[in-house]
Every structure is written in structure tokens, then in C-alpha cells.
Amino acid sequence: MGIKNLMAQDHRDCDRLFSEAENAASTQDWEKARQAFQQFVQAMDRHLGIEEQVLFPAFEQETGIVTGPTEMMRMEHEQMRALFDEMAAALEREEADDYLGEAETLLILMQQHNMKEEQILYSIMDQRLDADVDNWQQKFQEWNRA
């Protein structure tokens, strides 16, 4: 268990919420879709926030690399947030094809982003940063409270 396993598990949990919202939207169950979408965005906000404010700064401090992979990851986070807005707007209009199209775009963006994190960035973090997962979980909880 390390940062990689911990954060990869969080990716899987977000994926599950994503597909719940998508499944509901594809059957035009808008009430359920809105609920699941809200849960998904909350989980994503937490995940992206932990990375941007806890993990990435730790990585940047340890390696001295500020304009490298973490900058790219932050940019992709912005792209994801823009797609959350588009998905929310499509939900508001109850337009299934638009919601599913925006959702599919997000899915691919998010998954290729996750691959890069899980196979490269988190691996380096596991080599270079504190290996104790309990410490990290505590830091994440502190961040969550703040």
C-alpha cells in the first residue's frame, strides 16, 4: 500500500459514481441522474483538491520540478472542471445526448489522466515521498476539515 494504491482506489470509487450518473441519464431518469452526478462531482472535488493542495506541493517541494508533470495535471483538472459545468448544464436541460456526449468526453479525458497519474506520477511519489499511508490519510482528513 502506498500513495499509488490509495489514490488509484479513489479513482475507482469516482468511476463508480460516474457510471451511476451516466446509467441514469441514459434511461432519462433525471432525478436519479442529478443525485448521482452531484455525488460524483463532490467526490471529484475532494480528489482533485487533495492532489492540488497536498500531494502536488509535496512532490514539487521534494523534486524541485514545478513546471513539469504537476503543471500538466493541474491543467487537465481545469479541463475536467469545465466539463463538469457542461454536464451540469445538459442535466439542467434534460438533454440525454448532450449529457452522454459530454460525459464520454470527460470519461476519456479523466481516464487517460488517471493512467498518467497511476503509472507515472504516483509511482514517482511512492519512491520519493513519505511511504507511510496512514500519515497521508491523516493529512487528507486535515485538508478535508479545513
Binding site: G68, P69, M72, M73, E76, K116, I120, L121, I124
Partner: peptide, 10 residues
């Protein structure tokens, strides 16, 4: 060690 590392999109 990570001089070649780039997570550039495409």
C-alpha cells in the same frame, strides 16, 4: 533520473 519525464498530453 526523470529528465525525460513528460506528461504532455499529445
Amino acid at each position: 533520473m526523470h529528465a525525460n519525464l513528460s506528461l504532455q498530453q499529445a
